[in-house]
């Protein structure tokens, strides 16, 4: 990737592509980008908040687990709306794959410090799907249905 820590490409009104490096300080900017995009697509305030937090949690997990603190890992993100108007976020990393055992849903009692992110994503989004079939890294798809409060 180029030397910019964060690059945005507006493919259309319904699709935004972003590439960033694996740094926690960029998460706040991503929250702003998805907030703007989701509002533009007609999602209400509560839905926008959910999407912002879920994206935040997904990125924090990629940075901490897939790249294990390496600040130069590449992350590709796509926001788009599908034919139903639902918001789809696809996050691709090129880091270490997670152990699927660690990604099973757990009850809150089993959590201590850490491990809260996946639980939150599942609470906030309608679909949370990991694809480990890529040769390198993982693809995470998050979907938020419009006006379908969980």
């Amino acid at each position: 990737m180029s030397e910019k820590p964060l690059e945005v490409r507006e493919v259309s009104n319904q699709e935004l592509q972003i590439t960033l490096v694996s740094r926690n300080e960029l998460i706040r900017e991503l929250r702003q980008k998805v907030k703007f995009f989701a509002k533009q697509q007609g999602f209400d305030d509560e839905e926008v908040f959910d999407v912002q937090l879920a994206l935040n949690e997904a990125l924090a997990n990629v940075i901490e687990h897939a790249y294990q603190g390496d600040q130069n890992g590449r992350i590709d993100i796509k926001f788009h709306t599908d034919q139903n108007g639902d918001l789809v976020i696809v996050i691709k990393d090129y880091g270490q794959k997670a152990d699927p055992e660690c990604l099973k849903s757990r009850s809150l009692d089993e959590f201590r410090e850490g491990g809260l992110g996946l639980y939150l994503m599942e609470k906030l989004m309608d679909v949370v799907q990991f694809d480990f079939s890529q040769e390198d890294g993982t693809v995470l798809t998050l979907i938020k249905r419009k006006h379908c409060h969980k």
């Binding site: 998460i27 937090l53 935040n56 949690e57 924090a60 959590f111 201590r112 410090e113 850490g114 809260l116 992110g117 939150l120």
Partner: peptide
């Protein structure tokens, strides 16, 4: 975010 809540935990 959960990182903040994790600190309290």
């Amino acid at each position: 975010s959960s990182a903040g809540l994790g600190v309290f935990m």
